[in-house]
Design a protein around this nucleic acid. Structure first.
Lengths: 153, 153
DNA sequence: GAGATTTCATCAGCACACTGACTATCGCTG
DNA sequence: CAGCGATAGTCAGTGTGCTGATGAAATCTC
């Protein structure tokens, strides 16, 4: 008798939004490479030679998930993974030539997909939309790690 | 060399948002009952006697996932699941007394959590935020089902 | 320099989420 | 009423995402 209206729950809307994205990604970008896989690949194109921890930080994924995703990408020969000779704990990652090719292709398609996904919003609304999500997500992430992020020079 | 800025990708932000939510939910609402489980329970409090397909429609989950979630909820005795005597295909679902109790308790906590999650936004920004997400999600869902949703009287 | 602590990766376990294939049942139509 | 198509649910398979435990390597400390 006292059910709640889920459209006022940001968590529920976040799930629906991600679902919507998943749908569009599959249809317009790739059925092979998923969006998190693309994100990992992207991070390694920006900074080749990162280790798994570093990738997880950039992409906001935990250790286990990074290991899974990296495993799939190396199995498809989109990534190289070698032990760091200077630090036996680390695994250094870098994209292969094929990985770079795939990334380039998907970048174009992802841009098209973003356009479609944001089509219902006017131009000013889009930047507003992205900004609002980011603020909420950032705040929650800061709640977890109470690190001093005061100034990042 | 041509990496992309993921903060302009709504899909990536959607994932981070859901992650943020997951974090807060675990900390402030429940470690036992997940947010999708709560959503299913909520739908059945609003409309007891729904079948799984109906629940999936309300909560926006596919058949398989609904089956999983319903399975966990019935195993915890929060839901009753009986075969529809009038239609042998259907399974009719309704919350147990315990299910209603849990729902009531979690409703209060979820409201507190929403408050915390939206804390970084001003009041007008909050409604704007929820509205924008909903519009984007709705549009994508309409892309999938090109049903005539013109007028819902 | 040996021992304690920290750090990176892996693994097991659980939950969500989708697709595609299969089963059972219902409803319609000839 | 027999058969055919549509519908509800299940199952198998894959991928994301988390926690908590474990192992291995580096760093810090005495």
């Amino acid at each position: 008798m006292t059910a709640v209206d889920l459209t006022t729950h940001p968590g529920h809307l976040a799930r629906r939004l991600q679902q919507a994205h998943h749908l569009l990604w599959n249809a317009m970008v790739s059925e092979e490479i998923t969006s998190p896989q693309f994100a990992v690949l992207n991070a390694l194109i920006a900074e080749p030679g990162l280790d798994q921890r570093g990738v997880g930080e950039r992409v906001r994924l935990d250790r286990s998930t990074v290991a899974d995703v990296v495993g799939r990408l190396t199995r498809r020969d989109l990534l190289d993974k070698v032990r760091d000779p200077h630090d036996g704990r680390r695994a250094l990652l870098r994209p292969t030539a094929e990985g770079r090719r795939v990334h380039r292709r998907l970048t174009v398609r992802a841009a098209r997909m973003n356009e479609v996904m944001l089509a219902p919003l006017a131009d000013e609304e889009r930047t507003l939309f992205l900004g609002l999500i980011q603020r909420v997500a950032d705040a929650a992430e800061r709640l977890r790690d109470p690190l001093a992020e005061t100034v990042t020079p």
